[in-house]
Amino acid sequence: MNSVSVPDRERAVELVQQAYADGRLNPAELERRLELALTAASSQELASVVADLPDDVVRLGSTGGRVMRTGDWQVPRRLRIDSEYGRVRLDLSKARIPYARIDIELRLAYGGAVIILPAGASANVDGVRTEWGGVTCKAAGRPRPGGLHVHITGEFPYGRLRIRNSRT
C-alpha cells in the first residue's frame, strides 16, 4: 500500500476547497471530502477523493528553446513548465491573474528562469530544489492581505531561478 505524501494530501485538500469555491460542491460534500482527504491512508484512497474534480494544470514545455509569457496574458491557477536546455521568462506584472494564489512548478535541467511579479506580490520558493544552480528571491516571502501570492516548486539540477517584483 502506497502511503500518502504531505504534498499529495495538501494538493487534494486544495482541489476539494477549490471545487467548493467554484460551486461544484455543497458544504456537506466539502466536509465529507476534506475528512476523507485528511484521513486517507493510501494514495489510492486519496485519489478517489478527487477523481471527479478537475485538475486545472496548464503545461508548457521546451527542449532547447525559450518559454516566454509577457504582457497581457491570462495566468492559470496552476502552471507547470518543463524545459531541458531552454530558458523561461514569466512576466506577471501586466498579466490578468484572477486568483489570490497561483502555483508554478518548474522542471528545468540546464536552463534558468526569471519570474517578475506584480508590485506588492509575494512568493514562496521553499519547494524549489537545486543541486548546482541557485535561487534568488527578492520578493516578500509571506502572503500579504489582498496581494497575489505565488507558490513556486520544482527542480533545477544545474539551472538558476530569479524572482523579483516589477519595478513599475
Rank of each mutant, 00 (worst) to 15 (best):
T168W: 10
V58T: 13
L60S: 02
Y158V: 00
V135R: 00
W132I: 11
R160L: 00
A40M: 14
V13G: 03
P157K: 03
R164I: 00
P143A: 04
S93G: 06
G120D: 06
A28H: 11
P27W: 02
S62G: 14
E155L: 01
V75N: 05
P145R: 12
R24A: 10
P27L: 07
S62P: 09
P118A: 10
R164M: 05
V114F: 02
K138Y: 01
T136K: 14
D8E: 15
I152R: 01
V6R: 08
N26R: 12
E14Q: 12
E10S: 06
Q44F: 12
A140S: 11
G86T: 06
A47P: 07
I116L: 09
L30M: 10
R160G: 15
Y85E: 00
R66H: 15
A40W: 15
Y110Q: 15
N165R: 01
T63I: 09
G127N: 02
N2R: 14
G133R: 01
G65A: 06
I115M: 00
R164N: 00
G23M: 07
P54C: 01
I102S: 13
Y99E: 05
L90D: 03
S3C: 00
L106W: 00
V114G: 06
V135P: 04
A123Y: 08
D56Y: 04
S5W: 13
L148P: 13
G147Q: 08
L60T: 01
V4H: 14
T136N: 11
N165S: 08
A37P: 14
P143E: 04
V13F: 00
P118D: 07
Q18S: 07
Q74W: 14
V6C: 03
N2T: 13
A12M: 09
L15H: 08
A37F: 07
V4N: 12
L117R: 10
G154Y: 01
A19Y: 06
D126P: 01
R160A: 09
G65V: 08
R89T: 13
A123I: 04
S5Y: 10
D8Y: 08
T136G: 05
G127K: 10
R96L: 05
F156M: 08
A113W: 03
R96Q: 12
P157W: 06
E131M: 14
V128N: 06
D8P: 03
N165F: 03
D82T: 12
N2I: 12
R89Q: 11
S166W: 03
R144W: 10
Y110H: 15
N26C: 13
Q17N: 12
S83G: 15
N165M: 00
L38P: 08
G65N: 10
R77M: 09
G61P: 04
M68G: 02
L38S: 11
G120A: 05
D56I: 02
T39L: 04
H149Y: 13
L79D: 02
A95D: 12
P27F: 03
D126L: 04
R32H: 14
R77C: 04
G120S: 02
R11G: 11
G64D: 15
G146D: 06
